[in-house]
Design a binder for these strands. Structure first.
Lengths: 242, 242
DNA sequence: TGAGGTCGGGTGGTAAGACCACCTGGCCAC
DNA sequence: GTGGCCAGGTGGTCTTACCACCCGACCTCA
């Protein structure tokens, strides 16, 4: 209600239009895109806007551009990186359950590993930060606040893991999550309410017990996975029924 | 020697220049970028080239652009996605060992999980494909061919895992790897030579034994990790000694 | 007949200039 | 102190033009 009204630039619109065409298979991989001039005329926008969109598609490895020749569409499953995940999740204006399940599975696998490495390398600095966040959770039982704190918690864990790749992968996963934060507060209720679960992870990190940290993190994430799984089943039976 | 000569567009050069400035910390997060007009004048290029570069930086979540106000530089560690990994690995013209170690660690963790899911869901179709690749390995002991076959093998595994997120994450990791393929043929020799290791993974997938597939994959990757680890130590002692 | 060269048309790459939409800050009137 | 106004700067869009490059058709000549 009180969120900022989204405005969209033309190049953004062009980007999304072409991206949706590619990931939906409408523009098959290997086919050639119309020329920039043709696109700009067909879409009724300036050539510059088209170029900006094409550059972004190239960066996402959805197309390949060569001077003097037309842009070729690539097979996104074979080339695109994890940054595309959040866009894939909702491409075409509808939630893709197959992608959503993949995200949850990756979360369930990456999370414990991050906790493990944090337990291994985080030290007391990480433990202090985690404890402070958990203390804040106890102080405020509001679910929205819990969700924010939970994100902080994972942020701290990931920092403590000392692994840049995990950090970036976490960011990519979180970008997928952010689009549905409000919708998932209830679904992840079990996970968010279990302050003891967060505390157990923090304790393991403080003890420097990497395996325990991983195990406790896995237990914590399993609570949310339960809710997500039932949500997905419901969505499968009653599509669109958000 | 016979590789295509790389040409670089202006917008690409602008992108890399700004990206390096950001990830190196030279342009601290929170600071404001000069206006497009100032940048284009300072860099001696057209404003369009600057805009294309800025759009890409925004897509990589390195900057935030708002109409009417200057572009703000974001904290890339807090926002950038896994796609940045390959660029981070070599940003500033030198290999970043901390990033490299992170990549290897993620490989060691993600690989077995991919094998596990492939064993779980790949079925005979995946097993057939894997077996064919391993057969090809036996037929050609050349290391370069082995490396190509090894990539095909993982490609097939990842397809069999039925997880889009893993697929995209694998693509991101592979993009980091591709820049050093030639340099790593020797370093990964142990891994590439162990056809039996690949075969063991393929066998586990055929048997539908997910845990065995994960275990065999972990063993296989450990061989390469050994070589990589000693390489990194050497590079740490003699920097730049490629 | 086939190898090689020439050339025109189309493509992406770059440039310069202009105007619009929007934000910011300072000023002013109330 | 509030609200409105206004000017200057910013990103967003458009137009036009030219350059560098690639491709295919065509031609030439051994």
């Amino acid at each position: 209600m009180l969120e900022p009204i989204e405005r969209q630039s033309l190049s953004q619109a062009v980007y999304e239009r072409l991206r949706d065409g590619i990931v939906s298979g409408e523009l098959g991989s290997g086919t050639k895109l119309p020329s920039e001039r043709q696109l700009s005329e067909a879409l009724g926008v300036n050539r510059g806007a088209v170029r900006e969109a094409l550059k972004r598609l190239e960066q996402a490895r959805l197309v390949q551009i060569r001077q003097g020749g037309a842009a070729r569409i690539l097979d996104y499953q074979a080339h695109a990186g994890l940054d595309l995940l959040s866009e894939l999740l909702f491409a075409g204006g509808e939630l893709d359950l197959r992608v959503a399940r993949s995200v949850v599975e990756m979360r369930a696998h990456l999370g414990p590993e991050i906790a493990r490495r944090c337990g291994e390398r985080g030290g007391t600095a990480a433990a202090d930060r985690l404890d402070a966040i958990v203390a804040g959770m106890r102080a405020d039982p509001d679910l929205d606040a819990r969700q924010a704190a939970s994100l902080e918690f994972w942020d701290a864990l990931v920092d403590g893991s000392g692994n840049v790749a995990y950090r970036l992968a976490y960011n990519s996963l979180r970008a997928s999550y952010d689009g549905f934060r409000a919708a998932l507060v209830q679904v992840l209720g079990d996970e968010l309410k279990s302050v003891d679960g967060f505390q157990a992870v923090a304790d393991a990190v403080r003890a420097g017990d990497a395996e325990a940290a991983a195990a406790r993190a896995a237990e914590l994430l399993a609570r949310g996975a339960q809710g997500l799984s039932t949500l997905f089943e419901a969505l499968e039976t009653f599509p669109g029924g958000e």
